[in-house]
Structure formats: C-alpha cells, structure tokens
C-alpha cells in the first residue's frame, strides 16, 4: 500500500481514537445516570427557593388577621394574592397594603362576560360611586352582615340607660374631657360592636369592662340607637399638640375605611371627625402597643410615630362631623 494511504489511515484512526477517549472525558459526570440528561440538574432546579410562602407562613405573627380571614368568604384568597410574595418579610421590610382597592378588587369582582355566575360581580360604575371598596368592605372578611349594619334599638330606652354614662361621656354624648370619647353622632353599628366587645371581653378597659358586663344585648342596641341620633358638635377649638396639616397627609392612609375627613365610611368602623384629640392619641398608642386589639388597626398603627399620632389626632379633631365625607 502506498505510503500516503497508510499515513492517511493512521491519521483517521488517531482522530477516531482521540474522539473515543474525549467523549467520556468531556461528558459531564451525572449525565446518563437516569437517562439522556444531567441528573444533577434535577436537584439544582429543586434547590431554588420558593418566593410565595403560603398563609401558614403568615399565621405565625398575624394570628388575629388569620381568625378574621379564615372565617370569611375570602378564605380562598390567600394573603399573598393581595399583599404579594412574603419572601423576605418581615426581615427586609413590610409587604404592600394595596392602596387602590378599586383596582385590586375589580380584578376579580368586575362584572365581565366569561366570569362564572357563582363569582360575586359588580357593575363598577354603579356600585359605589367611585368610593374605595374598603369604605364598606373589610377586605379580610368582605361580607357585610346585616347584623352589623342595622341597629334596631329604642333610642328612648337608650336615653334612660345612658344616664349612667353621662358622667364621663356627657349628657348629650359630648365628652367633657380629653381622655374619653364623644359618642354623639357615632355610627350605631360601631357602638354595638364595641360595646359587645367590652361585654364579651374581646376588648378590655378597666372602667368600661365592668360597666359593659352589666349591659344586656338589648341595652347595647338601645344605647347605640340613642347616641347615634344625638347631634355631634364640631371642633370647638380644642387645642392639641399636633399639626393638623401634617395629619391630613397621613390621614390619606386611613381614608379608605374612615372616610376622607373621618366621618364617612363603613358603619362598622368609628367616625373620627371632631373626636377628642387626647382620646385619639391614647387609642392609637394603645393599638400600637397591642393593648387594644384589632386586626386592621394593629398593622396600621404599628408604623406611626408619636408625632404622627399627635398630628392625626389634631387633624381629625378639627374636622366637621356634620359632613358625610
């Protein structure tokens, strides 16, 4: 065989040999372990950290919120649906509290062809006149129960029972001092709710608790009806330490539930306009410290400084309680 053919064949054989040796060397270790792929890529993919943490992650701290949410019709809507993934919280910051409730809630509840009939849906334009959904609905338990909105007490009977309250809250429901709240014109469902809470022990106060324990369910309805009908008195220039203008800016965060000037909103939640500033300061501080318990307020008050609280109190105290905003 001619020399060049021999050499050519040798070269070809050498190339094949190098290839045969190179193939196993270059094949990554875990390849072919289970099939035609790199087995180690499976644990690599499995090792990725979850971003969404499930409600169980939230239960640890937000126990009150959990109780409310899990009893309501939104129990299938998990925390992270509205608040976003919980990874990194609380270590690296708060989770967003959605500010534009209309935009958020209508993602699911805007009447839209294609949505199953069982899904509660609203005609957005007609439903609320542009108000935030949270004005009437508690997002964690959105159903508005009739018990909470309708108070069927007897105001006259309430008036008699209220004689015992007058020493602190004023005969006309206008508190004579800074530390106790005025009750005149207050939302009746709220009054029912809060008195019931004192009675049941859900809410405690050294003075109010024993008093409320004496009340029957009818008494509570009657009292609420009585105070709700009284005419509130607007700012009488009660001086307070806060800056009302600064308070106004902060109060935007409260508007969704309490109304823009603190006198509108969900009847289940208190009106704040023209309330005693000292009382407001005390209550906010109590929420902040966890002495007074409310799932919504605990979260809101947690981020407020003493100055913020004073400013907010000053703002609400200065508002006209006759308006319905």
């Amino acid at each position: 065989m001619p020399k060049h053919i021999v050499r050519l064949i040798l070269i070809l054989v050498a190339v094949l040999a190098v290839a045969a040796i190179a193939k196993p060397i270059l094949t990554v270790d875990s390849f072919y372990r289970f099939g035609h792929y790199r087995a180690n890529s499976v644990p690599e993919i499995a090792a990725q950290e979850p971003v969404y943490q499930t409600p169980r992650y939230c239960y640890g701290c937000h126990t009150e919120r959990r109780a409310q949410w899990s009893a309501g019709s939104h129990k299938t809507v998990t925390c992270e649906v509205c608040h976003g993934p919980a990874t990194g919280h609380p270590q690296s910051g708060k989770l967003p509290i959605p500010t534009d409730a209309v935009k958020l809630c209508t993602l699911c509840h805007e009447a839209m062809p294609g949505r199953p009939k069982s899904q509660p849906q609203i005609q957005v334009a007609e439903h609320s006149g542009g108000q935030q959904c949270t004005v009437c609905h508690n997002p964690h338990s959105p159903k508005i129960s009739s018990a909470a909105t309708k108070v069927s007490g007897d105001a006259a009977a309430g008036k008699q029972r209220a004689a015992a309250c007058a020493s602190c809250h004023g005969a006309a429901g206008i508190s004579p001092n800074e530390s106790w709240p005025s009750l005149a014109g207050q939302s009746a469902p709220y009054l029912v709710r809060i008195l019931s809470a004192y009675k049941s022990g859900d809410q405690t106060d050294p003075i109010m608790t024993p008093l409320a324990k004496e009340l029957s369910a009818t008494d509570i309805q009657n009292l609420a009806a009585f105070y709700a009908r009284l005419s509130c008195k607007s700012a009488d220039g009660s001086k307070s330490g806060g800056d009302a203008a600064a308070g106004k800016a902060l109060a935007k965060n409260c508007a969704a539930c309490h109304g823009e000037t603190g006198s509108g909103g969900n009847p289940a939640w208190p009106k704040l306009a023209a309330q005693k500033p000292g009382y407001l300061v005390n209550v906010l501080k109590a929420f902040r410290a966890g002495l007074r318990k409310d799932p919504m307020m605990a979260g809101v008050a947690r981020g407020l400084s003493d100055t913020d609280i004073a400013n907010l109190a000053a703002f609400y105290a200065a508002q006209n309680c006759q308006s319905t905003k």
Partner: peptide, 18 residues
C-alpha cells in the same frame, strides 16, 4: 503530502479507487 511524494501509477490507482 503527508511526507509522501509518490505519484507512481501504482499510487494513482489507489487514489482513483479512493
């Protein structure tokens, strides 16, 4: 050339076959 200058008829016959 792979070091081979062989272009004899014998070599060329191989080449043609290839």
């Amino acid at each position: 050339t792979l070091g081979s200058y062989d272009v004899s008829e014998h070599a060329m016959r191989y080449d043609r076959k290839w």
